[in-house]
Amino acid sequence: MSVNREDLKRLIDFIHEEDTVEVYDFIGYLNMKREREAIDQMDIDLFSEDQELIRQIEQSREDRANGRIYDQEQGLKYLQNKIKEFESEQNL
Rank of each mutant, 00 (worst) to 15 (best):
K82Q: 15
R10H: 04
L11E: 05
K9F: 03
A65Y: 12
Y70V: 04
E49G: 04
E58R: 13
M1P: 00
E49K: 12
D19E: 07
M42D: 09
H16F: 08
Y24P: 00
A65G: 03
E52T: 11
F14W: 12
D13I: 01
N31Q: 12
E89Q: 10
Y24T: 09
E35I: 07
D63N: 11
E18S: 09
L11S: 06
R10N: 07
K82Y: 14
L76Q: 11
I69P: 05
L8D: 00
S88V: 13
Y70T: 09
F47S: 04
D43L: 14
F47H: 02
Y29S: 05
R5H: 08
E62Y: 13
D7I: 02
G67T: 11
Q51G: 01
Q80G: 07
F26G: 08
E17K: 10
I39G: 00
Q90F: 06
V21H: 01
Q56T: 10
E37K: 11
D43R: 15
K33V: 13
L30N: 06
D45H: 08
F47W: 06
Y70H: 15
N4G: 01
Q56D: 06
I39C: 00
E89S: 12
G75I: 03
S88Y: 07
N31H: 08
V23N: 00
A38W: 00
F47P: 00
T20E: 09
D45E: 05
V21S: 04
I69F: 11
Q59S: 07
E17C: 01
F26M: 10
Q74R: 06
E22Q: 08
A65C: 02
R5T: 09
K82S: 14
H16W: 08
K84N: 14
K77R: 15
R68H: 14
I39Q: 08
D40R: 13
Q72R: 12
N91C: 01
E73L: 11
N4W: 01
E37H: 04
E87H: 05
I27C: 10
Q74V: 11
E49T: 03
D50S: 04
D45R: 09
S48W: 00
I57F: 08
E18R: 04
E52F: 10
K33S: 12
Y78R: 03
H16A: 15
R68V: 14
I39V: 07
Y24N: 08
L46T: 00
Q56I: 10
G75K: 02
D40V: 04
D7V: 03
